[in-house]
């Protein structure tokens, strides 16, 4: 019984000393270390994001059989999902097929011609940014005109063209030279 009481006393003593030591440590730190702070400084970078025609192709496989003199116009859109205005450029990549050097392409924004030429002349390294920026949240409608010139003659049956239409955007902020 006596031993039990002694153990109890020792335990309570240790606990008390432990608590007191923590208190002492906290107050000592408070005295020897002076500090003030401004918490929760938040920095978030913006992003440039474009939606080009919801990812759908502007012209489908086997949709048209091109003949000399034929013109096909297709519409597509570009939407700026960024939080700021962006400069953009449209270009073609993954170009393949024999028609690539014969088919003439014209990309229009309303009545304004943005790009014109053979599809192989409208690759990423050959096109410049459009003159005007597309505002944040703006959706802009475009037309793409495919023209198979008469002077090209009848295409052989196996002639075709495949391509990926791409859009690239860059923020207008701190970017007066429209650098991509």
């Amino acid at each position: 019984m006596k031993n039990k009481n002694a153990a109890k006393k020792v335990t309570s003593g240790i606990i008390a000393i432990f608590v007191l030591a923590i208190c002492l440590f906290a107050t000592t730190i408070a005295l020897v270390w002076e500090a003030v702070s401004v918490k929760d400084n938040l920095f978030i970078t913006g992003r440039v994001k474009l939606n080009l025609n919801d990812g759908k192709p502007v012209i489908q496989e086997n949709e048209y059989l091109f003949e000399p003199g034929m013109r096909v116009a297709k519409d597509f859109f570009l939407e700026n999902l960024s939080g700021c205005p962006v400069y953009y450029r449209l270009y073609f990549s993954d170009i393949g097929g024999g028609l690539a050097d014969e088919l003439e392409i014209t990309v229009l924004n309303g009545d304004t011609v943005l790009y014109s030429g053979k599809i192989t002349e409208l690759t990423k390294d050959k096109v410049a940014a459009a003159d005007d920026a597309i505002e944040a949240g703006e959706r802009r409608e475009f037309s793409i005109l495919f023209h198979y010139p008469k002077e090209s003659g009848n295409p052989p049956a196996e002639k075709h063209v495949t391509f990926t239409l791409c859009a690239e955007g860059v923020q207008t902020i701190n970017n007066p030279d429209k650098l991509f």
């Binding site: 500090a35 003030v36 929760d40 920095f43 970078t45 440039v48």
Partner: peptide
């Protein structure tokens, strides 16, 4: 580094 976040606490102190 697009769409990235950073949170920091600024502290002034005298040791």
């Amino acid at each position: 580094y697009q769409n990235k976040e950073l949170v920091a606490d600024f502290e002034w102190r005298v040791t």
